[in-house]
């Protein structure tokens, strides 16, 4: 069955796409996540589920049901709560290191364009999502140039856009890249992405730009670079809905490679 085109994959300047994009970037606060993990007793991974359910129940709703617990249960879960709290504090620093949205998008994404043939660093393929800040997005090591796609002519950023950067201009470049990919023109797409990175290095569409770059790399046949960039994106944004898109792209790319 053919998948229908998603709203975010259509015209990015459309109001509907804007609205959908705003929700895709929506996410809970790390503090809320820590609180819930602590309430469930899985902050440190030591409590038993039956116990955690009751303990968490009392936390949620100190509003509703705490009074129904017997004194002995209260004493028991208080002790357990203190124990888990201490351990949660112990891991708190690790949890706080969950990266923000910008890390991959701002890790010089244009690097994948200027040196298209790359191999993933060992760190990029390691499943260590809590420490991704220390991982390079794509390793600087390169494969033989003969195996890489032809170089791309990079357009200079337009002066007016550089002087007055705006979301509309950034969206226009993302749209241009998307349209080019739909026409299987990965060179134009890559050039548009390069321009976006140059003009809006900290723009709000960094994550989308990275995902489109993965698609461009897949289209160009540079699966090593696509995988390296895609893996680092997934490691940096494990909860993002865009990860599913990246995995699908890499999966499709693998299939394409096998067919070839």
């Amino acid at each position: 069955m053919n998948e229908p085109l998603r709203i975010v994959d259509e015209d990015a300047s459309d109001l509907g796409a804007e609205l959908v994009r705003s929700a895709i970037q929506d996410r809970p606060s790390p503090a809320a996540r820590r609180r819930t993990a602590a309430a469930l007793g899985i902050g440190a991974g030591i409590l038993l589920p039956a116990a955690t359910a009751k303990a968490a129940g009392t936390l949620i709703g100190a509003k509703t049901s705490a009074a129904t617990l017997s004194l002995s249960l209260v004493a028991k879960w208080t002790a357990v709560g203190i124990a888990s709290g201490v351990l949660v504090l112990g891991v708190g620093k690790v949890v706080q290191s969950i990266p923000g949205e910008a890390s991959v998008a701002q890790q010089s994404p244009s690097a994948a364009v200027t040196t298209p043939a790359r191999s993933p660093s060992p760190a990029a393929s390691m499943p260590a999502p809590l420490q991704v800040e220390s991982q390079p997005a794509v390793s600087a090591s390169s494969q033989p140039l003969a195996a890489s796609p032809p170089p791309i002519a990079m357009p200079a950023p337009s002066q007016s856009a550089a002087q007055a950067p705006s979301l509309a201009a950034e969206i226009a470049l993302i749209d241009e890249a998307r349209r080019a990919l739909r026409a299987h023109d990965w060179r134009t797409a890559t050039a548009a992405l390069y321009q976006r990175d140059k003009e809006f290095p900290r723009g709000p569409l960094g994550m989308e730009g990275t995902v489109i770059r993965v698609e461009a790399l897949v289209q160009s046949g540079n699966m090593a670079a696509a995988k390296a960039l895609g893996d680092s994106f997934v490691a940096a944004h494990p909860g993002s809905p865009l990860c599913r898109r990246v995995r699908a792209l890499l999966g499709a790319g693998d299939g394409q490679t096998r067919r070839e």
């Binding site: 809970p28 809320a32 609180r35 819930t36 309430a39 469930l40 589920p49 039956a50 955690t52 359910a53 968490a56 129940g57 936390l59 949620i60």
Partner: peptide
């Protein structure tokens, strides 16, 4: 509400 969902799951 998220916490409630995971409490249900834990049970």
């Amino acid at each position: 509400a998220t916490q409630k969902c995971f409490v249900v799951a834990s049970r």
